[in-house]
């Protein structure tokens, strides 16, 4: 464990909590892409199946349980409890265009052709594009609530910190996982446009509105 990976995990946890609190407190999931939340829940479920097979550390197991439960709770809030506030008309990204290629690629490019490894690879590839429905929805509505931009900032930051963690681990431990690194790069690059808007607008107190 190094400071960048810990900061990344904390940033990820902050993002997940911000979203859950935003929906719970405002009793509304306006502006939130339910499709992205379903993809994130799938990412955690397919990646953390080893929760029951191997024990790495209390930290590792408890974070996995928190991520899985918070993401499933968020999906429940969006599609059931606060379904009336779900903006389905703008959450129209065709997720099959993500899941099918990612599913195929995880069978073709992986470290080991075993069920657990293929599911892990699927989860890594899926996570790198899971935010697309959310970014697509913001581009369609032309704006995002400020709290939603903070959620996206920490979510994008987390994998960026993981990239630094992988540089650190390669340099000090000789460890590197090309699949995770390439997917992490794609994932972080997808946020660049948002990061620019976040820094130039939201951090200056303006609302995030895209030129519609």
């Amino acid at each position: 464990m190094n400071i960048f990976r810990l900061a990344g995990d904390v940033s990820h946890l902050v993002a997940i909590i911000i979203l859950l609190l935003k929906i719970w407190k405002t009793r509304s999931c306006a502006g939130i892409s339910g499709k992205s939340q379903i993809l994130f829940a799938s990412v955690f479920v397919t990646r953390y199946l080893d929760l029951f097979t191997i024990f790495i550390s209390l930290y590792n197991s408890s974070m996995k349980i928190i991520y899985i439960s918070c993401s499933i709770a968020t999906v429940y809030l969006v599609y059931f409890k606060f379904k009336a506030t779900y903006d389905g008309n703008h959450d129209t990204f065709r997720v099959e265009f993500l899941v099918v290629p990612v599913g195929g690629l995880s069978f073709l490019v992986n470290h080991d052709f075993s069920p657990m490894e293929i599911l892990w690879t699927f989860s890594i590839y899926l996570e790198s594009v899971a935010i697309l429905p959310q970014l697509f929805m913001i581009s369609k509505t032309g704006e995002a609530e400020t709290i939603t931009t903070h959620y996206l900032f920490f979510l994008g930051l987390y994998r960026g910190l993981y990239l630094i963690n992988w540089i650190w681990r390669y340099y000090f431990e000789g460890f590197f996982d090309l699949i995770a690194i390439v997917a992490g790069l794609v994932q972080t690059v997808l946020y660049c446009d948002f990061f620019y808007l976040y820094v130039t607008k939201v951090l200056k107190g303006k609302k995030l509105s895209l030129p519609a």
Binding site: D9, H12, N60, M63, K64, H111, D112, F175, D177
Partner: peptide, 10 residues
């Protein structure tokens, strides 16, 4: 290749 890297990351 079965060099599955250790999965100690989240």
């Amino acid at each position: 290749d079965t060099d599955t890297v250790p999965k100690d990351e989240l």
